[in-house]
Computed example of a mutant assay.
Amino acid sequence: MNFDWGFFWKNLLTPGAPFLQGLALTVLISVLAMAGALVVGLVIAMMRRSTFAPLRVIASLYIWLIRGTPLLVQLVIIYTGFAAANVFRFQDVDLGGILIKAAIQAAIVGLIMNESAYISEIIRAGLDSVPVGQTEAAQALGMSGISAMRWIILPQSLRLMVPPLGNSFNGLMKSTSILSVIGVSEMFLVTQSISAASFRTFEIFAVVAIYYLALTTIWTIIQSAIEKKLNARVGIVTTASPWQRLFGGRRSAPLTPVTTLSDSGVLK
């Protein structure tokens, strides 16, 4: 079978409405799932750091269970398994004229649960990277544990969390292709439908691969800008461009702290 360039370029440059709707749904589910996973992941990370043993056990069991089973299995259990066992059944919800299908709800919940187990470890490692002495110093100044976390610990650890969190979001966007197994009409499922109708499998899947690549590339550029801004706050000059990060280019100069002299000649 010859490669149909006309079909390829048509679907790449002027995709139909179903494909664009699938693309929009892919992005929407990714953003909502990542936002939810950050919240749940933070809660789980704080439970892991708790001095109350039962909370640590619950958090550890959650991480062990979620990270030890495939996302595909989790999605089927959440959407189909619970309904078959009469435990819980997702229902279509109408929010102000916007219909949110049951499969989409299950997809977002499943992705939040799966991703939060990994994000919790990223957050915990980031928080643990801040020396304990800083927490003790904050408490000595009369700050509560929550205030110390909000103003001292989180700002310092956030810079270290952003790179792995950004990579997690990239992986999450690609994982949305699995949602087709529970009937979510995201970009991959729409592509399968086009392939079945046109018998142009190679061409249409080449198109969807390019769109996934575009999504992850755009996010990599955004992530690079976020990292650069956070590094600048602590006086670190980031010289690598987003394109160097994407294609493995060498930095023009190492990361160096910015030091300036005040009017009195003191380094600041």
Rank of each mutant, 00 (worst) to 15 (best):
M187G: 04
R159I: 13
D94S: 15
T217F: 00
F90G: 04
L267W: 09
I194G: 01
G248Y: 00
E115I: 14
Q91K: 14
T14G: 02
A225K: 06
G16V: 01
T80H: 12
I112K: 10
T69Y: 05
G235A: 06
A103L: 10
L165A: 13
S195H: 02
V234G: 08
G126Q: 11
R124S: 03
M113P: 07
L42R: 04
S241E: 00
L127D: 04
G142V: 02
T260Q: 11
D263S: 14
Q244C: 02
A107H: 13
L246V: 00
G145M: 05
S177G: 07
E121G: 03
E186Q: 10
N2K: 07
A137E: 06
F19E: 02
A17P: 06
Y118N: 04
S147C: 12
T260D: 06
L42E: 11
T135F: 13
L25E: 11
S157R: 10
L154W: 08
R56Q: 14
A206M: 15
G265L: 07
F8H: 04
S116G: 06
E203F: 01
A35K: 10
P70L: 04
L141V: 01
S175G: 09
T135A: 13
Q21Y: 07
V207I: 00
L38G: 12
V181I: 15
A148I: 03
I119M: 15
N167A: 13
N2G: 05
A17N: 13
M161R: 10
S198K: 00
V181L: 11
R150G: 03
F19I: 05
A24V: 12
L42C: 12
S262P: 05
P131E: 06
L158R: 12
V208P: 01
L23N: 04
E115D: 15
T201W: 00
R89T: 15
